[in-house]
Computed example of a mutant assay.
Amino acid sequence: MSKELDNVTQIDDQNVRKYGGEQREPKEPFKFQIGESPTFLVQEPDADTVMDIEEARTTRRVLKLFLGDQFDDLADFIGPEHPDTLIDLARDMSKHFGLFDAEQAVNRADRRGRDRRRVGRRR
Rank of each mutant, 00 (worst) to 15 (best):
P26C: 15
D48Y: 05
I87P: 00
G68D: 01
M51D: 13
H96T: 09
K64R: 10
R114A: 15
R118P: 01
I78Q: 09
K27S: 13
D110G: 03
R91V: 05
D110V: 10
F66D: 08
S37L: 09
I34R: 09
P29C: 00
I34Y: 08
K95L: 13
L74R: 04
L63G: 10
F71R: 02
L86K: 14
A105W: 13
F32Q: 05
K95E: 15
I87A: 07
L63W: 08
A56N: 07
R57T: 12
R91D: 11
E28M: 08
D101E: 15
D73C: 00
D48S: 08
E54G: 14
E81S: 10
I53E: 14
E55W: 04
K31P: 00
Q23A: 11
R117T: 11
A75N: 02
R60Q: 12
E103I: 15
M93G: 02
P83Y: 13
F66C: 11
A47V: 11
F77C: 03
H82F: 12
I53H: 10
R61A: 11
R61W: 01
G98H: 03
Q33D: 02
I87H: 06
H96R: 03
F32T: 14
K31A: 04
K31Q: 13
V119C: 01
D52A: 10
E103S: 08
D92V: 04
L63Y: 05
A47F: 03
F77K: 10
A109Y: 03
E36S: 04
N107S: 09
V119G: 00
T85L: 01
A47G: 00
D76M: 02
G21F: 12
D52C: 07
L99N: 08
R118G: 06
L65F: 06
S37P: 14
G98L: 02
R24D: 02
H96P: 01
